[in-house]
Design a protein around this nucleic acid. Sequence first.
DNA 1: CGACTAAATGACCGATGGTCATTTAGTGAC
DNA 2: GTCACTAAATGACCATCGGTCATTTAGTCG
Lengths: 198, 198
Amino acid sequence: MARKQQEKSKQTKEELMRSAGDLFGQKGFMATTVAEITAHAGYSKGSFYRHWVSKDKLFMEIIENKLKEYRSSRDERLDKAGSLEEVMHIIWDFLEIIVRDENWAKVFLEFTVYASRIPELRNDLSLSQYRLSEKVFAELVRDFVETGYPPEKLGAFNTVLFEGYMVQSALGTGIVDLKDIREAALTVALANGLKKVQ
Amino acid sequence: MARKQQEKSKQTKEELMRSAGDLFGQKGFMATTVAEITAHAGYSKGSFYRHWVSKDKLFMEIIENKLKEYRSSRDERLDKAGSLEEVMHIIWDFLEIIVRDENWAKVFLEFTVYASRIPELRNDLSLSQYRLSEKVFAELVRDFVETGYPPEKLGAFNTVLFEGYMVQSALGTGIVDLKDIREAALTVALANGLKKVQ
DNA sequence: CGACTAAATGACCGATGGTCATTTAGTGAC
DNA sequence: GTCACTAAATGACCATCGGTCATTTAGTCG
């Protein structure tokens, strides 16, 4: 039934993904070599390309996995949210998880910038929703905006704050902390999105 | 007097810098090859390394030149500034110049992220002041802050906004415009830095 | 002109992402 | 058990990159 072979292949793929995950986190995307990934998992270089067509695609698959679980738990909470403020807190709890993992926040940024030069990859990335795109954000927030303020703009502004913080965090000049950013985001959201703010 | 040789060497260097500047702006830092830079200027690859020890150092020199003139005009205006609001406007006029040149804003970001993995380069970059670091910013703002609010934090928050916008701009998802960002920066600065805000 | 030096060249190096013919090892019919 | 078949794994190989360096070309000056 060829069961054993399939399982072995699957296992190999998982081992390679773990190895790659470790190395990307430590050294970054560019600096991690395909040969290192396979060697670290105990395979030869050629094995890699039986599972992915490129280093890029492997990375895409890793981040997809990495964020899938977070998203689901976020979306569960969002279903129960009753106000703009609640939604904002859920969203920033979610973002906080990403930022807290400093190594990966840095790698995300590295890959995003890298991908922005490669049309196909850039497209994949925007489809993958790994970035909190302004569109996604706008949908999350739309139902709770009482004023005429465009939810897209609210989303985009949050993304700016978030990614700006990612850059700061990646460069290691940590003067603002996430709490400050979160507060600023909340203030702006409530001021623009609600009719009455006390 | 060897005058002619020196001038030729200087001219060659300038030609290479122009060539590099064009190509970096079009294709980015990584995607631009040393061989391309020299070929585009009509020289051979080896010539490059008579003028710079690496592609990195050439880039450093280009951005240094690119920003020197901007900084001087900014600093002139800052000498005459009389309020926090004025300082903020001058700073954001300065940042606007950077962001307006979309190609270069993108390359700056690319290089910053790239350099963050290379300790020596990262150090050079922070010394070069090409980034509006929170320290530089704090100095500009310090004299006008009336409250106990730390100028460093004000600076850092501005940098977050600015670099977040750079990322958005680099990825080409332009929903927030610079005016929104500038307004937000001003609001936060005045709210935290002044005792009375009308 | 001849000795010296600076500018320019391009073959070369090691490392990288990616390819592919070859080897190794399960699988299933008989 | 054995044979044909197929999937997994290998590593030599390729083009390209940043960077090096011995060699060539061409000003400089006594």
